[in-house]
């Protein structure tokens, strides 16, 4: 009996969470697309989410591009296909590694920061204070972050793509002995617009997930410092997992051409 009760509780709790998240998403999206919209706050968040993530995302992309070139060179040499390095680096970075790695790095940085900030506002009654000042917290806190993340993530990923390909180029020409002109020509010839755009489209979804998880867990945090800590952890973990899962789903459904 007890065992069944435990299973029931877990299932009910899971459904409660899904339902609460669904209501949250609905509210959040509604406030993103209905006025008033705060351009000042969106800009502020774009700087925090986008500009301040540049070093982390840039370094990640650079080293990933470099290591990709090395690995593909080793793998390719077994089939006498070393010349494919430049095109596969470009494909891998733009289609997968750029968006996913940038998404994961930003999830670690930004989801945590958003959850901590909004969570602290919740436990110190600042969110209640917003309501009493006739300001909707969804409008003032959640919507600007969601909009900013959806706009900035593709920009960040475009930069990450560029830096990643450049990382591959530097390793390819400096340590693997490729000719610079040939490397660039192979990159440009093989890559298609769709490779880049599919990655950028995915990254917009990742941006939404990152901001959403930060806001959701922060907004629902309770119980002081410990609660905020838990919200921060949950935000990063759930954002990362959702990024990876949604990446698989989007890739298999939409971009399998």
């Amino acid at each position: 009996m007890n065992f069944l009760a435990v299973i029931g509780q877990v299932v009910l709790a899971a459904f409660t969470d899904v339902g609460r998240l669904a209501v949250f998403v609905q509210n959040a999206v509604r406030h993103c697309i209905t006025p008033p919209i705060y351009p000042r706050l969106i800009l502020q968040q774009m700087i925090r989410i986008g500009y301040n993530s540049l070093p982390v995302v840039g370094l990640t992309a650079f080293f990933t591009g470099g290591v990709l070139a090395l690995q593909i060179y080793i793998g390719g040499s077994r089939f006498n296909a070393e010349s494919l390095v430049s095109s596969i680096v470009a494909l891998g970075i733009t289609r997968e590694l750029g968006p996913v790695l940038a998404g994961l790095m930003v999830a670690g940085r930004v989801s945590a920061a958003i959850a901590a900030e909004i969570g602290t506002m919740r436990v110190t009654e600042q969110i209640d204070a917003l309501v009493t000042l006739a300001t909707n917290p969804f409008k003032y806190l959640v919507a600007p972050r969601l909009i900013a993340a959806v706009i900035t993530l593709p920009i960040l990923v475009a930069i990450a793509d560029t830096i990643g390909i450049m990382g591959g180029y530097i390793v390819g020409t400096k340590s693997l002995g490729f000719n610079s002109g040939v490397y660039i020509k192979n990159t440009v010839d093989f890559i298609e617009y769709q490779d880049v755009f599919s990655g950028l489209a995915k990254s917009a979804v990742f941006g939404f997930i990152i901001a959403l998880m930060g806001c959701y867990h922060g907004y629902n945090s309770q119980g002081g410092a410990q609660g905020v800590g838990r919200a921060t952890t949950n935000a990063v973990v759930s954002a990362s997992i959702l990024i990876l899962a949604s990446n698989y789903i989007m890739t298999s459904l939409l971009f399998n051409t």
């Binding site: 900030e117 506002m121 110190t124 009654e125 600042q126 209640d128 204070a129 917003l130 009493t132 000042l133 006739a134 300001t135 003032y140």
Partner: peptide, 28 residues
Amino acid sequence: MGMLFQGAALFDSLKVWENVAFGLIQGK
């Protein structure tokens, strides 16, 4: 309505005067 919260609940991302003016700028 106006409310004074137990822990004051001031918005720490804003300056003091912006806190006081918040209801006027955002609400009104």
